[in-house]
Amino acid sequence: MEPPTGAKGQLIIGGIVAGSFAFSLIANYIGYGGKTSFLFWITTVVFGLSLSANILNALKLTMQWQFWFLYNTVQCIKALTQGNFANVGKYIFYIINSVAALLLWTRNGTAAKGTVAVA
């Protein structure tokens, strides 16, 4: 599959992200019974980032690694908020992993930002 480029590509990726966050908001609103709280909002952000990153992963776009970095950072904050320090350590490892993966996928200029890294 050819990677989306230019304005059309930005529109497609923007649609993926917007759709992911809209679905996350609706699902969490239903799941939390219409009650919002800090945990509701952070869960909504985490789920939206996860959906976006998974779709970008399915398309083999290097941009996914920035989403995984954000996802893991927000999950780390969520774990800190809940006092779950085992998960804090886990997400610190995942943050390092997402940075390393981005560097590996873009090493030697073989995959430009937002392009297919694996043919």
Score class of each variant (00 low, 15 high):
E2Y: 05
P4R: 12
T5M: 10
A7M: 13
A7Q: 14
A7P: 08
A7L: 13
A7E: 14
G9P: 00
Q10F: 07
L11H: 13
L11S: 14
I13N: 03
G14K: 10
G15S: 12
G15D: 10
I16D: 00
I16R: 08
V17W: 05
G19L: 02
S20F: 01
F21I: 04
L25A: 06
I26K: 05
A27V: 07
N28C: 07
N28V: 06
G31N: 02
G33Y: 08
G33I: 01
G34E: 07
G34N: 03
G34P: 00
G34I: 04
S37W: 02
S37Q: 03
F38K: 11
F38M: 10
F38A: 10
L39T: 05
F40I: 00
I42R: 02
I42F: 05
T43Y: 00
T44Q: 01
T44F: 00
V45H: 02
V46Y: 00
S50W: 01
L51F: 10
A53K: 06
N54E: 05
I55P: 00
L56S: 09
L56M: 14
N57E: 14
N57W: 08
N57T: 15
A58L: 15
A58P: 03
K60M: 07
L61I: 13
T62G: 13
T62I: 08
M63G: 15
M63F: 13
M63W: 08
Q64K: 10
Q64S: 09
W65S: 05
Q66P: 12
W68D: 04
L70P: 01
Y71P: 12
Y71K: 15
V74N: 04
I77V: 15
K78D: 00
K78N: 10
K78Y: 07
K78H: 10
K78G: 03
A79R: 10
Q82D: 06
N84A: 07
N84P: 00
F85K: 04
N87D: 14
N87E: 08
N87K: 10
N87T: 04
G89L: 08
G89F: 07
Y91A: 05
Y94V: 10
I96A: 13
S98D: 05
V99M: 13
V99T: 11
A101E: 13
A101L: 13
L102F: 14
L102A: 07
L103D: 06
L103Q: 09
L104T: 08
L104K: 11
W105Y: 14
T106F: 01
R107T: 07
R107P: 02
G109Y: 07
T110S: 06
A112E: 11
K113H: 14
K113T: 15
G114R: 02
T115W: 03
T115P: 03
V116A: 06
V118Q: 04
A119S: 15
A119H: 12
